[in-house]
Nucleic acid binder design. Structure first.
Lengths: 194, 194
DNA sequence: GTCTATACTTGGATAGAC
DNA sequence: GTCTATCCAAGTATAGAC
């Protein structure tokens, strides 16, 4: 598999556009025609950079996961206690939400999983694994230090928290008065604060 | 718009199949060919019952919401306290989850909203509104009676809870060791119990 | 209510010139 | 790196017979 770090500038522009399209319409909802129009080139030019649509899907997910990890590192550097870290984490989703009520790429691809090539699903699974791992780490630290109530395993808490974030993006799409991921996180965090 | 209650038996078999397909692959992920094959008829026969694909999508969502409301009524009849009701509610999602890791129809359609006809989106919005309303009712009763901690408005709690359920279905799709909606709900309920 | 046949469009993908 | 031209499959939808 091609790696996102090998992308030429032209290829990167294509991936940028594909990311936007997947966020908005999903993998099954965009075509090479849409993509080419957005980039300002013609359909066949895309094949000079990518072998097939599924490769593009996989690379979008791969790069997204990579950037998300960078954000997690930044949060670890900038904050200390669990609650603040989780708020910063929720703000990553809130930013996505505020940008045209976009979805998390991997939330979208996760929903579509049954009709997606394995190549793509593998990357999506990695995204969720990375998130669960990070959240588990943060939450178990919070439990140890006493700022998070010890009502369930850190792993269980992590999963619920991630679920809430992914769900908030989806329900926020069609509900005009939805409050968004940050608010949803605040509710959970209030319930978990000791 | 046609209503789901007017469906002939033949039309109903088509809606049944469409529901399964949307749950699995999404609105953009299934074709009339798939649908016809599943029902055991030919593509054009579908048009005898439905004018277009979007009508089918809207009716699937409409019937799904109707049945969901029946389930909510059943829960109200069979249980009393907020926590038990919310567990029963989570079990509705758990059942969906255990059935081939299916998605909530409206979670799927919500994710795809940007590429869906208004006709469909309107029904999806109704589903979420119904759920939020019901959860708000249950939660505010729980707060009044003291079984649910008063850490946020019933409306905010309702939204977080629904988000968690929808998200659990999505993250559960690609994560082999995901715990599912019921477990996610138990975590939240433990945090909300006074 | 279902069929065959078919129209028309779009979608993913390739060949080969510039 | 991008283009035109083109292929073929699939997708939605219609006409009209049974």
């Amino acid at each position: 598999m091609k790696r996102f770090s090998d992308l030429t500038p032209a290829a990167e522009r294509i991936v940028d556009a594909a990311e936007l399209l997947i966020k908005s319409k999903g993998y099954n909802g965009f075509s090479f025609e849409d993509l080419a129009r957005q980039v300002g080139i013609r359909k066949p030019s895309i094949y000079h950079h990518f072998e097939a649509k599924m490769e593009l899907g996989a690379i979008v997910a791969q790069r997204y996961t990579h950037r998300f990890r960078e954000s997690l590192l930044r949060i670890e550097g900038a904050t200390v206690d669990a609650k603040t870290r989780l708020q910063a984490y929720a703000d990553l989703f809130e930013t996505t939400y505020r940008t045209n009520r976009s979805l998390c790429i991997c939330g979208m691809l996760g929903a579509e999983a049954d009709s997606l090539p394995d190549e793509v699903n593998i990357e999506v699974r990695r995204f969720f694994a990375v998130n669960i791992e990070w959240l588990t780490m943060v939450l178990s630290e919070g439990i140890m230090k006493g700022s998070i109530r010890n009502i369930a395993s850190a792993q269980d808490l992590a999963e619920s928290f991630l679920d809430t974030m992914e769900g908030a993006l989806i329900t926020g799409r069609t509900s005009p008065d939805a409050r968004g991921p940050r608010r949803a996180a605040d509710v959970i965090l209030a319930a978990l604060s000791s």
